[in-house]
Nucleic acid binder design. Structure first.
Lengths: 220, 220
DNA sequence: CCCATGCTAGACTAATTAGTATGATTAGAT
DNA sequence: ATCTAATCATACTAATTAGTCTAGCATGGG
């Protein structure tokens, strides 16, 4: 990407946002990505370039001057989108909580993504296009899923209240049950067909994990 | 579907399978559906009618004489496919097993679907097309997921070794963690990116559930 | 003031696609 | 043998699509 190094050297226009050529390009690029994001997330990869240009409020030619072709645009977009969802999680203050509140908070944060239309659409897109774009799935797994599981695994290992024989497997089970809840309820519309509150899922998950941990500790 | 009631009244050809007009139509229909199935599962709904006709070894016109249009064909197909996966499960001999072997067997059966290309492709398709064909997701949830969870919930309720406060939530967690394992490992290709054996998942899931059940029973 | 650059609008190409039409071929029923 | 109905191969229409091209417009830097 031809991004010059120089920063803006002097602005002229007071009303409009400053427009260094570099800034200008960055803004256009951003504008395109916003429009493309909405369009792809709404319509899948089959969204037309005309529709994207219209949604972005940009000439079709401009799309092609910023991104060589549809696939490049899609790839760049999904890359950025996934980056955006990379879990900041496992913050120090979260880590400082006692086990039960920690697990509850973690589950709540995970499930709060259900309310994010972009996240839900992204999930559908990643799964739906996983045959055509295996690379996309791979990035999703590598950037989002794997680190999340790794952190949870590490937490379980470090926490002597959670003495499981196979921390990684337990982490995957916890994480998986939550992600699948999002898929069933939001992606597939289960909230209409077979609804259940997320509190019930969270409570039972925590109960099961903590009870099992106690028993596991006892039986060693 | 114009299926005449009369059965075949006399066969002539010894080599070729008997061809009552009715049987003939049923065979053609079957032939079309087989081809359409492979094509849709490989390429998603964007599979072309020409490709389907070719794969089925049938003239395109014949597709349209059996199914009014692409969407009808797709709907009929997915309907039948989902029907095919409706869980026979929870057989009497399974039910007769002690709790631990029962849960293990149930999990094994669920995860054995990972090895079925049709099942994995169906999952991808149902999720991927859930925005364009919400009806498809609904049928999937109603026919496959809901009954499975209901049966497991019922089993938990009836089994005094599994005294959970919220059997349905626990059933959903168990089921969800297994389905998500299939999605992550097979649909998204996690078996290459972040592999883990299904035994570890099954063992940990059973451990967690049984330990939690013991503790739950103790603490009441 | 002028010019370079990026943008726009819209026409255009070539390919693909759902669905239709046609005329030939086949095969079972009488 | 002949009639009928299904099927086939193929060509066609109309719509859509990715990607290109062109000519004009805007704007900020000199």
């Amino acid at each position: 990407m031809a991004r010059a190094l120089r920063k803006s050297t002097g602005k002229t226009n007071a009303l409009v946002v400053a427009h260094d050529p570099t800034d200008r390009a960055r803004d256009k690029r951003e504008q395109i990505m916003q429009g493309a994001l909405r369009t792809f997330l709404s319509n899948g990869y089959s969204a037309s370039m005309d529709a994207i240009a219209a949604e972005a409020g940009v000439a079709k030619q401009t799309l092609y001057s910023y991104f060589g072709n549809k696939e490049d645009l899609f790839a760049a977009l999904m890359d950025r989108l996934l980056e955006h969802f990379v879990d900041a999680g496992m913050t120090p203050e979260l880590r400082a909580l006692p086990t039960q509140p920690f697990l509850r908070k973690l589950a709540q944060i995970t499930l709060s993504q259900m309310d994010d239309w972009e996240y839900v659409s992204m999930l559908r897109l990643v799964i739906g296009e996983s045959a055509r774009f295996p690379q996309l799935s791979e990035v999703y797994l590598t950037r989002l899923v794997s680190p999340g599981i790794a952190k949870l695994t590490h937490y379980i290992k470090e926490n002597e209240e959670l003495a499981f024989g196979d921390p990684e497997a337990v982490a995957r089970i916890m994480h998986g049950s939550l992600i699948n809840f999002i898929i069933a309820q939001e992606v597939l519309g289960g909230k209409h067909t077979m609804p259940i509150s997320r509190e019930r899922i969270i409570n039972s998950l925590i109960d099961v994990i903590l009870f099992a941990a106690q028993q596991s500790a006892q039986s060693r």
